[in-house]
Amino acid sequence: MPGAIVTAVGIMGGLGLGFATVLAVAYRFLKVEEDPRVAQVESMLPSTNCGACGQPGCAAFAEALVAGRVVPSGCTVSSAAAIESIAELLGVDAGGALKRVARVHCAGGTAESRAPSTYQGHASCRSAALVSGGGKGCTWGCLGLADCAASCGFDAIVMNANGLPVIDPDKCTACGDCVDACPKDLIEIVPIDKPIFVQCAALSKGEEAMAECAVACDGCGRCAADAPTGLIEMVNNLPRVHYELDIPHTADPTLRCPTGAIRWVTGLQYNAESDSRRKHGLPR
């Protein structure tokens, strides 16, 4: 009996020794040299693997950084200081990427918009959208069932009492997950230094839009008329802001809006109480 134990230990020990040798040899001769800076940069990244930078994750972004394919500011999650120190370590320019945030093209919460029927069923915007449109009078508006909030990995979105998602620009990393989650395509990522924003997505015009929602854009075009040339274009009864043209502007185009559908948004879009019109002293 003891002989068997000795044999077993001997065999296992021998095997272990054999494999260890193979591994040691492989480690010595088949080693792939990795730039030590990759690991270092990776440790400076937030490890959220959110994908907002366009890479599959933080490790891949670190590799791309060291290889010089991207600039440090491509990471929208890291603080400015962290980005600066990565740039310093690599001896590159941090890159001037602007902070961008997600904003919602709808301000028609339960208080402002008409709901001809109540939706029952799986509590998700995507599911509700398939049931006769979700029960909201406005075909385009926010359903308020929080698919965007559930998709956000940074807890940047909370639903307010009025049934609208409130996005915290400080927490939002512009990763775009909520953009994909919204079945009504209401969320857009916009540069934070251009606060002019259209809070409506209804393609219907004038009275028709207003019958469904008190804060709908009625397509009057005053904002476009008041804006510097090219900044705002009326498309399908809705103003479209051309952020990409980088046209300097003020809050002027929002001032004559009869419904408050176009607004100068700094900070939170709407807050817990949310009645955007009354809060901002807009007419009606």
Binding site: H122, S124, R126, S127, A129, L130
Partner: peptide
């Protein structure tokens, strides 16, 4: 459980 609704949601997605 609204099973078929969840299924429809997945198909739509």
């Amino acid at each position: 459980i609204p099973i078929v609704q969840l299924i429809k949601t997945s198909k739509a997605e």
